[in-house]
Nucleic acid binder design. Structure first.
Lengths: 304, 304
DNA sequence: GCAGTTATGTTGACTAAGTCAACTATATAG
DNA sequence: CTATATAGTTGACTTAGTCAACATAACTGC
């Protein structure tokens, strides 16, 4: 906890400086930071009333009033009369305002592009991943929707890594599980049959938020494996969507049933399976992860 | 590039608000944000001269002078005379200043702790990782030193994931390499012999910055495998340190020679091997990664 | 050891940023 | 119709931040 806090403070210090330097670079003499932020917000929401801007940018009403007056004098914005409510003066950009905005917007883009210029493609992707993950962790309720897509290169192994870490933390399954995860994913990659097997990744703002795999067991049986949802992406229905995708694929591919192996302690996963029609058909206690744990075999009959 | 820029702007907006909210929470009436930042910086560096603070916090000299005067009036700091350079007035905290600082420090810690309270241990670790990676990517020359340590749970698979991604980007080696990486790491985990094999991770501020593995080939031969250094950690001598660790371990374990397989296109890696005494003893063209590439076998004779 | 230059820190004079409360005008609830 | 709430404006003010001039001390090259 202490080191976490220290790491966050270090980042805060760093980023405050970083943003400060960048803002200094993108601003020209036409407008100061507050005016630029205001113009950006107006451009994003127009037509918008002052009280909305005041709440969103968290600035004083009086101060905002003066700033909008300044922008109006400069010819960047205009204020309508609103017949529905004569108190409000909805703000819109003028043509000149649109030009000023797009200039600033372009300058800000260039400032960022300049910062990125020394980064290669992988590093840029890493940066986006890192920043997005951080944002999702700090703001878990951000209103973002996810998509389901095929795994990109490296993501199958990443699933092995993430599952090992998640279960090591939550249930103390250590190296033993890690070996199994690595072998399962390696075997999936080696023996992959494109027409009757599949892997799916849930993508939240470009970041892997969960995954699931379906492999062929022969005799009309498919196995659902390696389902996981990242902690930062929980409570968004990602687990259900992944399992649902699996089931659709299996039905399409002509399987008679899907089977899977899970554990009694994995509550969240078991609820997902139940919701999607799976039933537990047998249990077994094993020692593959160190301490003895109760495994469960579930299945879903697919009637076409 | 456009989506990268957009992701960064989104994060900037988010984080500006986030830091703003947190600052508002931790500040009491005793000091404003600028004074708090100044006090923090003094506490971190004391004894420190004004010009250093001015550069680090990027504020006006005159403004700083007035602020230090204010802090001195409040009894939080004292300014010595320096006999080496009579122009400077090294600043130190007084006892009262130390108390004020530690109060604010504590308040800031609590504000951060409050933000973190809804995150589990894995999520906290993920957050630190994400923020640190972002920082290293944005500030590649940050003066940080690395350590070499054993891989944590999940990191071996992460090596497979990262190598696949890095080589897919730089040399177009796709799924074929991914399979090999996954199998190699899975085999390492399964067959690991603690006394004569090893894996090492370079750790930069808590983040995996590179790795290498050494496996037993029998007949006194060890194989160095899966060396990689993350792009954000290049030019710090991490590759050399990893290879050096490997060689030391191999010598200690009584091997007669170390062999390794690499590729002619992997310039940076080849230079590391050369610097550490390896020699290329044969080459072979193969098609394992799709397009034909020239592989190379290198070795190092260990004379005890 | 001395002129010229540069660095450290202070001060006065100023501008810009931000705050607060009083105010007008309009809407809404009862 | 009255009481109350909301949208936005304005005057009076405080705080934050900037700029250039200044005093003092240190370095540089002769």
């Amino acid at each position: 906890m202490e080191t976490t806090i220290e790491a966050i403070r270090t980042f805060n210090r760093f980023f405050t400086r970083h943003v400060g330097a960048m803002n200094a670079r993108f601003l020209d003499t036409d407008a100061n930071l507050a005016e630029a932020r205001l113009l950006f917000e107006i451009a994003r929401q127009e037509p918008v009333q002052a009280s909305t801007l005041q709440a969103d940018l968290d600035i004083d009403r009086g101060y905002l009033s003066r700033m909008t007056a300044r922008l109006e004098n400069r010819g960047w914005i205009m204020r309508d009369r609103c017949e529905a409510d004569a108190r409000t003066r909805p703000i819109r950009l003028t043509e000149a305002g649109r030009v000023a905005f797009s200039q600033m917007d372009q300058r800000q883009r260039s400032a960022i592009a300049h910062d990125l210029s020394c980064l290669g493609p992988v590093e840029q992707e890493d940066l986006v991943q890192a920043l997005t993950r951080a944002r999702l962790l700090l703001d878990p309720d951000a209103p973002l929707s996810f998509t389901i897509r095929a795994p990109r290169v490296g993501e199958v192994s990443q699933v092995a890594a993430r599952q090992s870490i998640l279960y090591a933390e939550s249930h103390g399954w250590g190296r033993e599980l890690e070996v199994l995860e690595a072998e399962t994913t390696a075997a999936f990659l080696r023996q992959f049959k494109p027409d009757c097997e599949g892997g799916w990744v849930a993508d939240l703002a470009g970041v892997m938020a969960g995954a699931v795999f379906l492999t062929d067991e022969g005799q009309g049986v498919a196995r659902l494996r390696l389902l996981h949802v990242e902690p930062f992406a929980r409570r968004r229905g990602i687990g259900d969507a992944l399992v649902h995708t699996c089931i659709d694929f299996a039905r399409e591919a002509g399987y008679e049933r899907i089977t899977l192996w899970t554990h009694t302690v994995l509550d969240a996963a078991r609820r997902i399976y139940t919701r999607n029609g799976f039933e537990c058909i047998s249990t077994d206690v094993h020692h593959e992860f160190g301490e003895p744990v109760q495994g469960e075999t579930w299945q879903l009959i697919l009637n076409p």
